[in-house]
Design a protein around this nucleic acid. Structure first.
Length: 204
DNA sequence: GACAAGATTCGCT
DNA sequence: GCGAATCTTGTCG
């Protein structure tokens, strides 16, 4: 299984009821993908929390239920991937119990393994901190796309593992989420998290 | 069936 | 800093 020997995060981890806490705990965890014989790993360096209840930025706020958001109402531990601006696949992790439409958006990561595959999928030649920085770039580098909508995070194609060296709480920056001006007052919620000083970040 | 808008990114000014 | 690229989804008729 390569360098990372962390434990696969169990469904019970994702089913915790506080999505904002889960978003912070996910920092430092590794995302693993394996398809078409290509194995890739990235360490999560930036997350945002979206809550189904009381958060106007969430696609499923006010119990909005559509074909796209249906998967958000499943019990935690599945992937929610959707297409944004017609070209970017954004990777989210569903949390909480069934009928609680909470999710964590993975916004950036640090490439660890399968870097040649990531470079190829991103159409780049050299490794830079930008390879997995930004939700669209992160998904593209790991090969995650809409075809993974609703997939379990227990594998076999996508799974997460606990960090061997978690970021300490004091090093984590809390700030506002990006690209959600439509959310009114809720756009001010400090639900975006990243380790202080990390170069693998979408924006400061 | 038509239409507006979006949890973004990249290149150009 | 600004705007185009690009297409699925949700909403309305």
């Amino acid at each position: 299984m390569g360098l990372s020997s962390g434990k696969v995060l169990p469904d019970s981890f994702y089913r915790q009821t506080k999505v904002v806490s889960v978003a912070q705990q996910l920092l430092g965890c590794t995302v693993h993908t394996r398809f078409a014989g290509k194995y890739s790993v990235a360490r999560i360096t930036e997350t945002e929390a979206y809550r189904g209840w009381g958060d106007a930025a969430c696609h499923a706020h006010l119990n909005r239920r559509t074909k796209r958001t249906e998967v958000m109402y499943k019990a935690g531990g599945v992937a929610y991937v959707y297409l944004c601006y017609g070209l970017h696949h954004l990777f989210n992790i569903i949390t909480n119990e069934a009928e609680k439409a909470d999710a964590v958006l993975i916004r950036a990561g640090e490439p660890l393994e399968g870097i040649p595959h990531m470079l190829q999928r991103r159409g780049q030649e050299r490794l830079t901190p930008k390879l997995c920085a930004g939700p669209g770039n992160f998904s593209q580098a790991l090969g995650i796309s809409k075809t993974h909508y609703g997939h379990s995070l227990q594998g076999p194609d996508i799974w997460l593992e606990a960090p061997l060296d978690p970021f300490s709480r004091a090093e984590v920056v809390h700030t506002t989420r990006i690209g959600i001006d439509y959310a009114g007052e809720d756009k001010h919620l400090p639900w975006r998290f990243y380790p202080k000083g990390s170069p693998f970040i979408s924006k400061k």
